[in-house]
């Protein structure tokens, strides 16, 4: 097999992606937070965010996508897993069973009530984990084409 260069430069995609990218990232965050008590959540949010980076990869090139992410995708998986694992621990300190959901609400002056919880922490962990996993796969394949 002859390795082919990654060559999908298209003006339309290039221009479109710079508009779409922030929207996709915002939408992924929206999905992540909405997953609290409505359809959505960390997994689907992570997929959308990963799709945003993949779009960058298609519109520009491998290097641009890597630079956009800054960290190694596997490190994202690591951080995500740490968050998800840590989310299982707080109930132990209040004498409840492992992984029981804990809720805290904060009253902020301007924004009103802010609900924090261990499921949210877990979801953020899933979010990062999914981004990392998907991008590891995508980058591995792109790297193979790239070199």
């Amino acid at each position: 097999m002859k390795p082919r260069r990654f060559n999908m430069r298209s003006l339309i995609l290039n221009t479109g992606s710079s508009l779409l990218l922030p929207l996709l990232v915002l939408f992924s965050l929206f999905l992540l937070l909405r997953g609290h008590d409505e359809p959505g959540g960390g997994f689907i949010g992570g997929l959308v965010a990963a799709a945003a980076v993949a779009l960058k990869l298609f519109a520009e090139d491998y290097k641009a996508a890597r630079d956009m992410l800054r960290v190694h995708p596997l490190q994202l998986v690591g951080i995500g897993l740490v968050l998800a694992a840590v989310a299982s621990l707080p109930p132990l300190f209040v004498g409840e069973s492992f992984f029981t959901a804990q809720w805290w609400s904060l009253d902020l002056p301007i924004f009103g009530e802010l609900k924090l919880s261990t499921p949210l922490l877990f979801d953020i962990g899933v979010f990062l984990g999914v981004i990392g996993t998907v991008l590891t796969v995508v980058f591995t394949l792109a790297e193979a084409e790239h070199s």
């Binding site: 097999m1 996993t133 998907v134 796969v137 591995t140 394949l141 193979a144």
Partner: peptide, 18 residues
């Protein structure tokens, strides 16, 4: 996840084994 891995594996395997 598993199939994504399998695809990467087979891509590599095809490269190595030709």
């Amino acid at each position: 996840g598993v199939l994504a891995f399998a695809v990467v594996l087979i891509h590599r395997a095809c490269e190595v084994v030709q």
